[in-house]
Design a binder for these strands. Structure first.
Length: 880
RNA sequence: GGGGUUAUAGCUCAGUUGGUCAGAGUGUCUCGUUGACAUCGAGGAGGUCACAGGUUCGAGCCCUGUUAACCCCACCA
């Protein structure tokens, strides 16, 4: 292999695409449901087909790909199921927007034509997303790609809906629901975002019928008064005791409404009297049911006032409020106005203020589904990582309310319910029907509405594997191993999957839920379209490579926490890739001269060899453990440090002399062998994180197999503790020499003599065997040993070794004395601390023996340093 | 109203069960173009680990309280 095969810098463009195509065309990502090996499976959180992948997806999928690639190399039968979500409201809104630009709308187009348009959109954007996932290196099993509205998933939806309906867990009901006047559909409770807004509390007075008395009520929404059909007070409220049961006259409308008592009312709030509008407030609706009140609708689906509002009909709800307040003031109904802060619900999609409206919707009764979902987490069948999300999940399920699943949209799974115009029967069916099962009439129509998107997403872990059929996939890969997702959809998605999985999949849908945070911009703001601060992952890949982006996304970040996107961090990750590239280049440039069948004897290994091999073993063990406990960032950091700080900065430097010495072939071959061994192994450790560059280099190195992605995960090898210790002493000495040299401004090119003295023979032997290390890494030449300190030299004491750097000119004695006495002060205070500890009986008795032993060793070393430094100081004193 | 997260070097953050844990990246300063890499190497400066108590032989790490920022949940008009 010659230098020409590798460019001088890391250039991902030249190989990323090539390798992805290689992997994909060779079916390396494919999971075999009949295959051997324990299963390891992940279903992708299906991205919405609304647009393109953002940085959050890049993070999410990088995490999944790391886990998948790691387990695949470990020998698991590994499945990563890819796919997209149809994203009902969001996608429909996108397509409607493009229709609007064309000057038309979905009603003009008609349902069928409109859906054709959406499918076209889905094809385009769905493909784009799958392309982007490939760009990131995601090793998905593309043969199994699914879509929430494809045939299989739709079948699962029908099956689940029908079963829940038959069991009475899905029902239709006329209720107050959250209505978005802009999206024109009902939405579920969790799709409502509560925001605190400054508003007013208007005090109005309603006249008591036939008496010259008034009851004062307080309201934040005066425009709903047209729908008032009662006024409520607390039963124990003394102020209103004699009024309960009387009739009030609703101003303007002049309707007679009852004043009644209800526990719900908080006597301390406002005036203690509440206007009751059953058609437009959830609580009032409940009170209406309890007290048999009429529902008068005064606000329509579009957010405008209806017939009931009299002359205000047709006005926008807020416009009406303004005008009405003015009128109420003029006619003396408005008593006072207070400033008032309160939470107002907004549509999580379009931010429009939610209007609670009465309508007929489909609901899922959650109670019986939620219970097992809580149990599964409580008893540890499902574990959240990090653990703190357990509480959030449980708390939500404990307070869960029924789930409104019908949406007044066209894009989605149409509700499989048919209504008979003749006998009035409602029939739910797993297959389409054309006549009423009860009376046989052909005069039936299917429910116009579609299901909440999350209804089908909730089935994803098993609907993608062929459920309700009993498939091999389900048998092999369900439950999945882990779900990787952001904390923002724990309620929307995770909880629903657990409920549905337990109910229909007969087991938990996944064993672990690995939660990550959001990727924010450099200022810590959420990346969003409206702020225009989003960064396209594909742009980063184009500029820096997918490996760089992936590495940047998982380092310096801890599970569950948000992270910020910095181009500087991207560059730093790119620099790391370049470092790997060049370290490999160093080896490859010399590899042509490697004898392929050469295998070193035990005696061939140098201290540096034994050291790096041992360090590699340790790192392998730690990286593996960290990956197993989802500490991906920590695992990546360990590889980074090992590769850069140990392999490159120390080991490679120490092999140069052997590599360039053509006279002695055996040491040279040994160095090449160890370099290759450690580099190849490290590439395998790194492959899950940086799949492309590792494959590119691995293919150039001597290797076994077709691809690094299917090569075995490195096993922890032997660790030579002595080598690690000895090397660390030498490294310390080298650093010390470098320090002293920097002190006098010596340039690296200029070698200078270094004198060492030792407190024991073992150290002396160690250094005398490795003088060359000091020469190579600290420009120390010659390295000589002496019993007594040379006069004209800088000094630094290590444990057992004292380093002297002789100077050609005279040393500045005063300066050197100052430096040494500062050093001595530091040593002394360390000694004091160590002695303090060791003199404390509580410490020596209670602390683990190893900790105490450590402290003793440390103290002994400090004392050696103290003696050596003090002696040198004294010598300098004399010289003066 | 309930719950959570964060507070560590100028900046952004690691620090997984309490004992070489005071770290990294970046920025900054000094020096360096010997054939892996200037997307680099060597060296330096820089932190009362928010504050106050407590537990412990020992506390960024555990407990309590305080402050600040952010987030989630919540049908009081």
């Amino acid at each position: 292999m010659s230098e020409e095969t590798m460019g001088k810098v890391y250039d991902p463009k030249t190989f990323e695409k090539k390798w992805y195509e290689y992997w994909e065309s060779n079916n390396f990502f494919h999971a075999d449901e009949n295959g051997e090996g324990d299963a390891y499976s992940i279903v992708i959180p299906p991205p919405n087909v609304t647009g393109q992948l953002h940085m959050g997806h890049a993070l999410d999928n990088t995490l999944q790909d790391i886990l998948i690639r790691f387990r695949r190399m470990q020998g698991y039968n590994t499945l990563w199921m890819p796919g997209c979500d149809h994203a009902g409201i969001a996608t429909q809104a996108k397509v409607e927007e493009s229709l609007r630009k064309e000057g038309t709308n979905r009603y003009e187009l008609g349902r069928e034509k409109f859906l054709e348009r959406v499918w076209k959109w889905k094809e385009e954007y769905g493909n784009r997303i799958m392309f982007q996932l490939r760009t990131l290196g995601s090793s998905c099993d593309w043969a199994r790609e699914r879509f929430t509205m494809d045939e299989g998933c739709s079948k699962a939806v029908r099956e689940v809906f029908a079963t829940l309906y038959e069991e009475g867990l899905i029902y239709q009901g006329r209720r107050i629901t959250n209505w978005c006047p802009n999206c024109n559909t009902a939405i579920s409770d969790i799709e409502v975002e509560h925001k605190t807004e400054k508003g007013h509390l208007w005090h109005l007075r309603y006249k008591v019928d036939g008496e010259d008395r008034y009851v004062e009520i307080a309201t934040t929404r005066p425009e709903t008064m047209f729908g008032d059909t009662g006024v409520a007070v607390h039963p124990d409220d003394a102020r209103y005791k004699d009024l309960v049961g009387k009739t009030l006259i609703l101003p303007i409308v002049e309707r007679k409404i009852p004043l009644f008592a209800d526990e719900y009312v908080d006597p301390a709030f406002g005036t203690g009297a509440v206007k009751v509008t059953p058609a437009h407030d959830p609580n009032d609706f409940e009170m209406g049911l309890r007290h048999n009140l009429e529902e008068v609708v005064v606000i329509e689906n579009d957010g405008k006032m209806g017939e009931g509002a009299g002359k205000y009909a047709g006005l926008d709800r807020y416009e009406c409020r303004k005008k009405l307040v003015k009128e109420l003031e003029e006619i003396g109904v408005l008593v006072s106005t207070e400033e008032h802060e309160h939470a107002v619900g907004h549509c999580s999609r379009c931010n429009t203020t939610i209007e609670p409206l009465v309508s007929k919707q489909w609901f899922v009764n959650m109670e019986s589904l939620a219970k097992p979902a809580m149990e599964a987490v409580k008893d540890g069948r499902i574990k959240f990582v990090p653990d703190r999300f357990t509480k959030i999940y449980l708390n939500w399920l404990e307070n869960i309310r029924d789930w409104c699943i019908s949406r007044q949209l066209w894009w989605g799974h149409r509700i499989p319910a048919w209504y008979c115009a003749d006998c009035g029967e409602t029939s739910v069916s797993r297959v389409d029907i054309d006549k009423c099962p009860k009376c046989g009439s052909k005069n039936i129509t299917q429910d116009e509405d579609v299901l909440d998107t999350w209804f089908s997403s909730g089935l994803w872990p098993f609907s993608t594997m062929g459920w309700p059929n009993e498939t091999k996939e389900l048998e092999k890969f369900y439950p999945t191993s882990v779900l990787v997702t952001g904390y923002d959809i724990i309620f929307f998605w995770v909880a629903r999957m657990v409920m549905m999985g337990l109910k229909f999949g007969k087991d938990v849908p996944f064993r672990h839920v690995f939660i990550h945070g959001l990727v924010r911009d450099a200022e810590g703001r959420k990346m969003s379209k409206s702020l225009g601060n989003g960064i396209d992952p594909v742009e980063v890949v184009d500029k820096y490579g997918a490996d760089t982006l992936r590495f940047m996304l998982i380092t310096g970040n801890t599970p569950g926490n948000d992270m910020r996107f910095y181009w500087e961090r991207v560059e730093s990750a790119r620099n790391f890739a370049n470092k790997i590239w060049n370290a490999s280049r160093y080896l490859l440039m010399n590899l042509a001269e490697k004898e392929s069948d050469f295998k070193p004897e035990e005696s061939d290994y140098t201290l540096a060899d034994r050291w790096i091999l041992s360090r590699f073993s340790v790192v392998t063990k730690e990286v593996t453990e960290n990956l197993e406990k989802f500490e991906l960032g920590e695992a990546a950091r360990q590889i980074y440090e090992f590769l850069w700080s140990e392999f490159c900065d120390w080991y490679i430097e120490l092999t140069k002399a052997r590599l360039y010495d053509k006279e002695h072939n055996r040491p040279r071959q040994t160095a090449l062998y160890v370099l290759g061994y450690v580099l190849e192994g490290t590439l395998r450790l790194l492959h899950p994180f940086m799949p492309f560059i590792t494959e590119e280099i691995w293919q150039k190195l001597p290797h076994e197999g077709n691809t690094i992605m299917l090569s075995p995960w490195p096993k922890k090898g032997e660790v030579d503790e002595t080598a690690i210790e000895e090397m660390s002493v030498i490294m310390d000495a080298i650093k010390t020499v470098r320090n002293l040299r920097a002190e006098v401004g010596a340039t690296p090119g200029k070698k200078s003599e270094v004198i060492l003295s030792f407190s024991d023979e073992k150290l002396k032997n160690l250094f005398s065997a490795h003088k060359d290390y000091l020469t190579q890494l600290a420009s120390a030449e010659p390295v000589t040993f002496a019993e007594n300190a040379p006069e004209n030299a800088l000094t630094a004491a290590l444990a057992g070794v004292t380093v002297y750097l002789p100077l050609s000119g005279l040393i500045d004695i005063e300066k050197e004395k100052a430096r040494l006495s500062k050093e001595l002060d530091g040593i002394k205070s360390d000694i004091k601390r160590a002695e303090g500890k060791l003199n404390n009986k509580n410490f020596t008795e209670k602390a683990p023996a190893s900790v105490v032993e450590n402290e003793r060793t440390k103290l002994a070393e400090l004392k050696e340093k103290e003696t050596a430094t003090a002696e040198r100081l004294a010598a300098l004193e004399k010289m003066k």
